[in-house]
Amino acid sequence: MSCLCKGSDEAFLICNGYKDAEYISLALQAKQLYLNTVIVLEQEEELDLVIEISQKMGVRLVIDLRAKLRTKHAGHFGATSGEKGKFGLTTI
């Protein structure tokens, strides 16, 4: 994170991955260092944990949502696309 602090003020730190309490706390610490930090939510359950930890730390965070599209595609990750895909939030 210290290297990122020396970069552009317009750069974003996108946090996309498994979100446990330690991961979320680290992302929030990056926000406290004035990095443009965004946590990408992939499952509904992650939202409660992000809200709880951000309130404890007193940090207002930007979140983003990974959408689960209904369309399937070919290619390397084709098997994980569509409605039965493992990651992402649906509109239902």
Rank of each mutant, 00 (worst) to 15 (best):
S81K: 04
K84L: 11
T80E: 14
F77E: 08
A21M: 12
I39A: 01
L49C: 05
Q29K: 11
L41N: 00
A27K: 00
G58C: 09
D20E: 12
I63E: 07
I39E: 01
L47K: 08
K68A: 03
Y34R: 12
K86Y: 06
E10A: 14
C15K: 01
Q29P: 01
E52L: 11
N16L: 15
K86N: 07
K72A: 11
S25H: 11
A79I: 06
C5T: 15
T90C: 01
H76I: 11
H76Y: 15
E10R: 14
E42N: 06
D64G: 04
I53V: 12
E45C: 09
Q43W: 10
T37F: 10
T37V: 07
K56F: 04
K56W: 02
M1D: 13
G75K: 02
A27Q: 06
I53N: 05
R66G: 04
S54H: 05
Y34L: 09
I63V: 15
D9N: 13
Y23G: 04
I24A: 08
F77I: 04
K84Y: 14
L35C: 07
Y18D: 14
T80G: 02
A74N: 12
L49G: 02
G78T: 03
R66V: 03
L26C: 13
I53Y: 06
R70H: 06
F87W: 10
K56T: 05
L4T: 06
F87S: 06
L4K: 02
L89W: 01
G7Q: 13
